[in-house]
């Protein structure tokens, strides 16, 4: 088809009514998951429960209760606990690390590749692009958490016996119910990471150097956890985005205590609103000179 043929075609062949941005979101997610880097990070995350399970399997003596990460002593009794231990170990550093990379790369990565200007003159719309970027980061949070949970479940099933799970409250739940609990914990951790994602998105709008935005986001997640551990700053703790990160043990009680889930969700939405607004304010007025 030559250009002259194209000119003769009705406009509808090329243009439709403006879409809400769904095609852009689909494209964003597919670009994210077509990067080798994304899969490398997911594979590294999946490796964490695998290494834990292998370590437990290969040591003959049962780890003493009360030492090492919580639930570690339960792993050799019940493979379903590998997921819990894996998630618990990943929350403070490994998950924020990968989320920091993805969130920090959102805008700064496009700017440094020179693709940001082409997206904007397409025109993608600055607000739409920002929302799509955030949603794709949220999808990565789900994928990252599930990578740990699913790899943990699989290696647990492969190496250890499976049976009813004894909860923190002392009650026992069936295997099926424990899978539901695992998914709830994965959901809890995903929500925990959404505030950090918003912070990363905002930082990413401030620079054309993706590595800088990534490092800043990751450092902030560490700083928040350090502050959270200082008793002198008690008053600050409920406002730190990492405050409820390890609070998902409440989901392992019978009946489930939703308190920390609710507080966590509220806190994270606060961070999303504040840093989303900052990112919006910054990005919609920014001169794109990259």
């Amino acid at each position: 088809m030559s250009r002259s043929d194209m000119s003769a075609l009705p406009d509808a062949v090329f243009r439709s009514r403006p879409a809400l941005g769904l095609p852009l979101l689909v494209s964003e997610i597919s670009v994210l998951f077509r990067r080798r880097r994304t899969w490398a990070m997911l594979a590294s995350l999946a490796l964490i429960p695998v290494l834990i399970a292998l370590a437990v399997r290969l040591t003959s003596s049962r780890p003493p209760s009360g030492r090492g990460p919580a639930f570690l002593d339960q792993v050799s009794q019940n493979g379903l606990f590998v997921s819990f231990v894996g998630l618990l170990v990943s929350v403070p550093l490994f998950l924020p690390l990968t989320v920091g990379v993805v969130a920090g790369d959102t805008i700064a990565g496009e700017a440094s590749a020179g693709t940001l200007r082409y997206l904007l003159i397409a025109p993608a719309g600055r607000t739409r692009l920002l929302i799509v970027k955030y949603l794709a980061t949220a999808v990565f949070c789900v994928a990252a958490t599930l990578a740990v949970a699913i790899a943990g479940a699989l290696i647990g099933v492969a190496l250890f016996p499976i049976g009813p799970v004894t909860l923190l409250s002392g009650d026992s739940i069936a295997v099926g119910d424990s899978i539901v609990r695992s998914l709830l914990i994965a959901a809890y951790i995903t929500v925990s990471l959404l505030g950090l994602s918003a912070i990363g998105l905002f930082i990413s709008t401030m620079t054309d150097v993706p590595v800088g935005a990534m490092a800043t986001t990751i450092v902030l997640s560490v700083v928040s956890q350090v502050l959270d551990s200082l008793p002198q700053l008690d008053w600050l703790h409920p406002w730190l985005f990492s405050h409820y990160w390890l609070g998902f043990a409440d989901l392992l009680r019978q009946p489930i205590s939703w308190d920390s889930f609710g507080s966590n969700a509220l806190l994270q939405s606060g961070y999303i609103v504040v840093f989303g607004a900052l990112a919006f304010g910054r990005f919609t007025t920014k001169d794109i000179l990259s």
Partner: peptide, 23 residues
């Protein structure tokens, strides 16, 4: 300015999808 890890065609798909008017 393009995504180095995508093919030429995939890059064009991406930028075309960014235009909400392009069918």
């Amino acid at each position: 300015g393009f995504y180095p890890y995508l093919s030429g065609a995939a890059n064009l798909y991406r930028l075309d999808a960014a235009d909400g008017h392009a069918t």
